[in-house]
Simulated scan of single mutants.
Amino acid sequence: MTDALGGHFGTFSIGGRPITNLWFASDIDRLARNECELTSFVEHLDKASSNFCMDVSAEKAKIMTNSKESLKRELNVNVQTLEIVTKLKYLGSIISNEGSKPGILSRMAQTTANLTKLKPIWNNKNIAISSKIRLLRSLVISIFL
């Protein structure tokens, strides 16, 4: 990433600190203010990764913008075009250009599914209410929140 980011300066800032990307494990999110900046970064990332005998996965890499204008040119890695999406799942949350509604609906659906799976436990009179509450907090409420 140091090689790929060489010469790139953050155009976003949080608390006065420039931010160019976000990392979590093997996931990298690039923040760019415009198409030119994003194109330059993708080209540098593709070149830097090939220098280390690594490839950027075009199947996993996605582009999402919050601009009303579409990108004017395609972005490619490994001779494959990167897909432009309007929503994606990142670290268990749905990020969408529609705001937080899709993420909330997804969590509600997951919560309902987990409640349904635990129905035999809720109906079992041999399991203490305190145990049921602990299960509810750990297996259901944690997903919803």
Rank of each mutant, 00 (worst) to 15 (best):
D46H: 07
E74F: 03
L38V: 10
K72H: 07
N51H: 12
D29M: 13
I19L: 15
A58K: 07
D46A: 15
V42I: 15
R17Y: 09
L38N: 01
I28F: 02
G16F: 05
V42G: 01
K47R: 12
F52S: 08
V42P: 04
L71C: 09
G15N: 05
I28Y: 03
S26M: 07
R33N: 14
E35N: 09
R33T: 14
N21W: 06
S50Q: 09
K68C: 11
W23A: 13
T39V: 04
C36S: 15
S13V: 11
S26H: 14
R33G: 15
N51F: 09
S49K: 08
N76V: 13
R33Y: 08
A61W: 02
A25G: 05
V56P: 04
S49Y: 11
S70R: 10
L45I: 07
N51D: 09
I14T: 09
G16S: 03
N51S: 12
S26L: 05
A48Q: 05
E59Q: 13
S67A: 12
T65D: 04
T39D: 05
C36E: 10
V42Y: 02
L38T: 06
T20Y: 00
C53K: 13
L75S: 07
D46E: 13
N76Q: 07
E69C: 05
S70V: 09
D27F: 00
A48D: 08
I28W: 02
N66Y: 12
I19P: 06
A61C: 15
T65K: 11
